[in-house]
Design a protein around this nucleic acid. Structure first.
Lengths: 212, 212
DNA sequence: CGAATATATGGAGCAATGCTCCGCTTGGCA
DNA sequence: TGCCAAGCGGAGCATTGCTCCATATATTCG
C-alpha cells in the first residue's frame, strides 16, 4: 500500500470521478448486503442496493469473488498488522499471544455470515479470497507459532497453513448450526498444540506389537 | 429397518419392477458420478449416466439432497454400527477406542469429494444430510466420549455434537487444498481433549486476578 | 390372452443467478 | 463549447435445480 502503488504514480490515467464514486458506493452496498443476506447474496441485489446496473458492478469487480475480497481486504489488513503488537506485548508468554490473536481471527470469521464457507467454495475465482487470507495471515501465524515452539510450549509438527485452514474450518457453521460452539472447538484445537506427557500420535501405530 | 417397514407390510402396493430397477440404477449412477465429479455434480449428469430422464430422477428422489443422502446412507450405517464392537474391543483404553473410530470417520469424509462441504451447505434440503449424520453418529460419539470422561482421560466440556461438527469441518478442503493435512489436524483436536497440567481454558478468564 | 388402469417415464420448460455484450451517456480536456 | 474515451445500464446467454404433462408400460382382471 505504498504511495507508489496508486494508479497516478504508475503513469496510468486517473479514473473518472463517477467511476471512483461508484466503486466506493458498490463497496458500501456490498458490505451492507453481505451483512444482511450473507456472502452468497446475488450480484443483482448488490447492484440494486448501489443503484447501478450489472455492467457497472462487473466493470469494477470482474468477478463476484473480487468484490468479496475487496470488501474484506481492510479487515484482513488489520488482522495482519496487529500481531507485531500482540506478540510484542508479552514476549514472555508466546502461547497467550497466539491464543489472543487466534481469538481475534475467530471473532472476525464467526461474525461474517458465510465467509468461512466461502473460503472453501470451489467456485472459480474464489481461490483469490483464499489466497488473500493465506498470503496475509500465514506469516503472522508462522511468527506466533515459532515463538511458542522456541519457548518449548507447543509441538513442532503443526504448520501455520494447517492451523490457519483448521481454524477457518472450525468456524464454519457457527452462525447457522444452533448447538455448535465454534469458539470452544478452536480453543480445544489450540490446547491440542500444547505438549502432553503421552504423545498420542505414536499410539495409533504400534509398529512393534506390544510384547507380552 | 425392521421388516415391518417394508412397503408391502404396510399395505402399500409394491413398486413396479421397472421403478425398482431404475431406483437402483440411479443409486449406482449417482455414486459413480459423485466419485468422478464430486458431490455437486449436476442432476442432469446423473440422469444421463443412468440413461433415464430428469423426471425419473426426481420421481425417485424428490430433491437433490435426497439422492445424496440415499447414496451415503449405508456407509453412515456402517459407521454407526461399529462402535459397539470398537468400544468393546478395548474397554480398558477408551481414548484409543475414540481415536480409532474418529480415524475411520475421518477417512470416510476425506475420501468423499465435497461431502464435508455439503454437510454445511445452506441449500434447502441439505439439512437432511446433516440430520442423518447427527442422528446416527452423535450417539456413537456420546458413548465413546463418556467412556473417556469416566476413565478420567479427557476434559468433560466437549459435547458429542460439537466434536462431530468440528471433525467434519476439519475435513473440509482435504482433497482440494494441496498443503492442508486434515487428518493431522483432527489428531491435534483429539489431543486437545486430553487433560493437561495447565488448563488453558481458565487462563483467558482471570475471574479473580491471581492473588499475590 | 387382451383390455383397463394405475404407475412410471422423458424431456421441454421455468426460475434463479453468474457473467457478457453493446449501444447510449457523460466527465474532462482543449 | 465540442469532442471522445471512459463509463454505464440492462437485455440476454449459459448453467442448474426442479416441475409438468403427454406418452409409454407393467400389472391385474375378466
Amino acid at each position: 500500500m505504498s504511495p507508489a502503488d496508486t494508479p497516478q504514480a504508475r503513469g496510468e490515467r486517473r479514473k473518472r470521478s463517477d467511476a471512483r464514486r461508484n466503486a466506493q458506493t458498490l463497496l458500501d452496498a456490498a458490505a451492507a448486503v453481505f451483512a444482511r443476506a450473507g456472502i452468497d447474496a446475488p450480484v443483482r441485489d448488490i447492484a440494486a442496493e448501489a443503484g447501478v446496473g450489472m455492467g457497472t458492478v462487473y466493470r469494477h469487480f470482474p468477478t463476484r469473488p473480487d468484490l468479496v475480497v475487496a470488501v474484506f481486504r481492510h479487515q484482513v489488513d488489520a488482522l495482519a498488522a496487529t500481531p507485531a503488537g500482540a506478540s510484542g506485548e508479552n514476549p514472555e508468554n508466546p502461547y497467550e499471544a497466539l491464543r489472543s490473536w487466534v481469538a481475534r481471527f475467530t471473532d472476525f470469521l464467526v461474525t461474517k455470515h458465510g465467509l468461512p464457507e466461502a473460503l472453501h467454495s470451489d467456485q472459480a475465482g474464489l481461490e483469490s479470497l483464499h489466497a488473500e487470507f493465506v498470503d496475509r495471515l500465514v506469516p503472522v501465524l508462522d511468527r506466533l507459532l515459532r515463538a511458542c515452539v522456541d519457548a518449548g510450549r507447543i509441538r513442532a509438527d503443526v504448520r501455520p497453513l494447517d492451523l490457519m485452514i483448521a481454524i477457518g474450518n472450525l468456524c464454519i457453521g457457527a452462525d447457522t448450526f444452533p448447538g455448535y460452539r465454534a469458539r470452544h472447538m478452536v480453543d480445544v484445537l489450540l490446547a491440542g498444540l500444547l505438549h502432553h506427557a503421552p504423545a498420542p500420535t505414536d499410539a495409533d501405530r504400534p509398529r512393534t506389537p506390544t510384547a507380552p
